[in-house]
């Protein structure tokens, strides 16, 4: 059976686009959320029990819904945002809702690992809360933040394949429609191969970048 490379490359680009855009929006949402989850904690920069409990609950709710269900459940919202519930752009909405809270948790974890002594030193220097976040907390956690974002990106690659199942396009769509429904084993193997290489590449670049920042 002949392999339509044109189609595969097109699907690859759709996957890359879905992952990149949803990663971008997820970080935009997840980073402030993660920071808020840290600084509203008891005894932290901006202690606020109600806000912490609220954010914590929201993140937990989104994190507990399996992606395939989340995708279907938010269809009305997706329509509201992008005008349609089918296609690559439509897939990005549930992907952001899935990865945003996930990234928030990963960022929260990294920031909590920062030595409290560094914060003490920052306060002793007279740093403002904003300076403490931008000049102390984030730079100190950056190496670990990058590893977290790498994990989230790989999660998004997986999610993008699932999005394919409901007409989101991309490599997952290709694998389902050709590989599964038309018994085209070659296409199935090629898509799986591409996904494996993609994830390997992402993890390695994440590791290298994180190591470079850590400077050890």
């Amino acid at each position: 059976m002949l392999v339509d490379w044109q189609q595969i490359i097109e699907a690859l680009w759709e996957t890359v686009a879905m992952v990149s855009f949803s990663l971008l929006f997820s970080v935009v949402i997840g980073l402030p959320l993660g920071i808020l989850l840290v600084i509203t904690r008891k005894g932290h920069l901006w202690e606020n029990k109600q806000l912490f409990n609220l954010l914590n609950a929201v993140v937990n709710i989104f994190r507990s819904i399996p992606f395939i269900i989340l995708m279907v459940a938010v269809i009305p919202f997706t329509r509201l945002v992008v005008g349609t519930s089918i296609g690559t752009a439509a897939a990005i909405v549930p992907m952001v809702l899935y990865a945003g809270p996930y990234i928030a948790r990963l960022i929260e974890n990294s920031l909590l690992e920062v030595d409290p002594g560094v914060m003490e030193a920052a306060q002793a220097m007279g740093a403002t809360p904003r300076q403490i976040i931008t000049r102390f907390l984030i730079p100190e956690a950056l190496s670990s933040l990058l590893l977290g974002i790498t994990i989230a990106t790989i999660g998004l690659v997986g999610a993008s394949a699932m999005a394919g199942a409901v007409g989101g396009g991309g490599l997952g769509d290709l694998a389902i429609t050709f590989g599964y429904q038309r018994f085209d084993t070659t296409v199935m193997l090629i898509t799986v191969g591409i996904l494996v290489v993609m994830v390997q590449g992402l993890q390695s670049s994440g590791n290298i970048l994180s190591k470079k920042i850590r400077r050890r």
């Binding site: 002594g117 560094v118 003490e120 030193a121 100190e140 950056l142 190496s143 400077r215």
Partner: peptide
């Protein structure tokens, strides 16, 4: 400080 509290990055 006892544990210096320097920025490792």
């Amino acid at each position: 400080f006892q544990h210096f509290n320097l920025l490792n990055s």
